[in-house]
Structure formats: C-alpha cells, structure tokens
Nucleic acid binder design. Structure first.
Lengths: 123, 123
DNA sequence: GCCTTCGTCAACCAGATGGTTGACAACGCC
DNA sequence: GGCGTTGTCAACCATCTGGTTGACGAAGGC
C-alpha cells in the first residue's frame, strides 16, 4: 500500500505526456537516458529530470552498467495506483448499474440514480 | 478512450490529496461545494477551484438543484485511467513472472530478466 | 422587496514545474 | 594519459498551481 505522499508523486508523475511515453517505452524493456531522450525534442537534461520524477514516484528504478544507468519500470507502484482507483470506481459503478437496472435510464444532466446526498458532514 | 490531454488532466487531478479525498467522498454519494469544503481547512473558493480541476479532467460532473450545484463522480474516466495503467503494468508483470519462473530469482540491483534493451532508437 | 445562502469570478502571492544552457564528474576505449 | 560517451548538477527563466481575500451574481425564504 502506498502512502498519500507516494500517491501524490505517482499520479503527478503520470500527469505528463513525456513521462507517460517513457513508461510506455520501458514496459517493452529497460533503456538508458540517451535512448529515452531520442524519443523527444528536448534536451537530455530535461529527460534526466523527468526520470528523477518517475524514480521518486517509485515508478522506475535504476541500475549501474559501467557509465550507463539503465532505467527499469517498477510495476508494483502501478499496481498500487490501479488499486486506489478501483476502490472508488467499483463502488460507484456498482451503484450506477444497480440503479440503472432499476430505473431503466437516467438523465445525464442531473444524475439522480442514487440516494439523495448522504450528508455525513452537515454544517 | 481518453486523449493524451484528457489523461494529463485526469492524472494531474488525482495528484493532490484534497482532490483524491473529494473523489473518495463522492464515491459514497454526491455532495455540494460547501459540504466538501467542510472536509478541509481551506476556503470554499479553493475547494471550488479543486472541483473545477476535477470537472475539466472529466472525473466529476455537476447538476443544478436550485442554487446548489451538486457534484457527482464520473466513474468512466476512472476506468480509462486503470485501462491506461493496466496496459503497461500487465505487460511488465507478465515479463517479470515468466522470467522469475525461469530464473528462480533475480538481482534487484540490476534486474536483467529480459532481453537486452531493445534499441529501437539507436543513434 | 429584502436578506441569506450558495457558489463563482478576479486579483494577487508564494512556491513548484518544465525547460534551457554551461560546466563537470565517472567510466571505458585507444 | 588523453578523449569520447554518459549522465548529473547548478543557475536561470517562464509558466502553472494552490492558496488567499474581496466582490458579486443567482436562487429562495420571509
């Protein structure tokens, strides 16, 4: 299970097309900084920073190979993200489905399909 | 399927503990801005901004109820996120598992477990 | 009609982010 | 030892973010 701060960093890391492309590339095998930099029209320093963000987010790891520092994907953290999302997605979809089945259809403009706002925090 | 820009906004939206808490709260039912603001020690204007971020990310929708504007979770976009993550997570874990089974164990410092970096972008 | 509640808009501020360039350390090849 | 390769560190800059406060529009209750 990831801490709040780890979730922060992991989601933030994926909120950038460059870093998502890096993840996609790494899912097909490790790569060096220069190899990854070839994928983008930005400097290798910028790519190095992106990798640091991914590393601090726990999404990638690095090893040593002479002067190279290959980057590898760390799927465990990805799994933690889907776990977080699914916790709320599934609850919600279950509500949708059960009530959609009940109501037949729902007004997309004002989705009622569930109990009135469960005010657990009234003023 | 979500566009790159939509993924950007959705991941960015979840990269904040306040917004994640809002999502968690909404998974148990809709809520108004003031109800959500009660959950945090910040102004309702700030919460309103967070909701705008979530709305532009496609993670929540809003409806009208007199002068209230209830916020509802939109699970479809959450589903798109897990779909994106799983695409790369599963590939990667399949590699891990098959090679872990093959090798018995792997050096965590320098995970080799697959073919040498598939250089599709050599200089 | 008046006032309260709900929510947003605008202006502003401190700090983080993503990019640049330049210098430099580490390693291996000759 | 000298050189090319790989990658990082530091300084700098423009832009975005998350928060504030203050004013204001919209909808109902009285």
């Amino acid at each position: 299970m990831a801490t709040e701060d780890e979730l922060d960093r992991a989601f933030l890391a994926l909120a950038d097309p460059v870093r998502r492309t890096i993840v996609a590339r790494l899912s097909r095998g490790s790569a060096t900084v220069n190899e990854l930099a070839d994928l983008f029209p930005i400097s290798k320093q910028a790519v190095s920073k992106h990798i640091q963000v991914l590393e601090q987010a726990g999404l990638v790891t690095r090893s040593r190979d002479a002067q190279r520092r290959p980057v590898h994907l760390a799927p465990e953290r990805l799994e933690a993200l889907t776990a977080w999302i699914d916790r709320y997605r599934l609850v919600r979809e279950a509500q949708y489905r059960s009530l959609d089945a009940l109501l037949g259809s729902s007004d997309p403009g004002a989705p009622p399909h569930h109990a009135p706002p469960d005010k657990e925090h009234p003023s």
